[in-house]
Amino acid sequence: MGTIKKTTYIIVVISFFISGFLYNMETIKAHRLMIEIEKKGQLGVYFDDGTTASDATVSAFDESGQLIFEEQVDKNGQLTYDPALTIHRFIAEDNFGHRASTMEKDTHIVKEIPAFIRIMIGISCFTFIATFFSFRHQYKEAKEKNNEKRGETNNEKSFN
């Protein structure tokens, strides 16, 4: 069990440094694709670390799901389209399975939490589970040993 305690300590310290490193980079370099409507008639496709998705293809659909147009963004991740079009939904896809849709409203409460805090929440969950079960197991082992000792003492007493 000492090993698990030490390993917990090592992983917490390493995770803290990695989190700090990522925090210092100001953004978390993740790889979620996002569509941002810059203004009517123009949108941008980015990864959530702010880099442009220069190879993304954007499809525009009307309310009945009919494709209105499908175009590739420019090297800056930008796409200009006719602002007179009534577009219900944009879908952006790159060549690696990343996908974004404007139908997914950005109202998720966790997005308001800074990425560093979200990482720490994740690490804390895992560390808590590890520590809880580690101590629980230690407690059980100690209890079993005590019971064995008591049993031995009782046997000795009854023998005497």
Binding site: I4, T8, I11, I18, I123, F126, T127, S134
Partner: peptide, 15 residues
């Protein structure tokens, strides 16, 4: 505990 710690490692590494 071991499963949880490695899950934590995977969680961080994927970021």
């Amino acid at each position: 505990p071991k499963i949880s710690l490695l899950a934590g490692g995977f969680f961080v590494a994927s970021l």
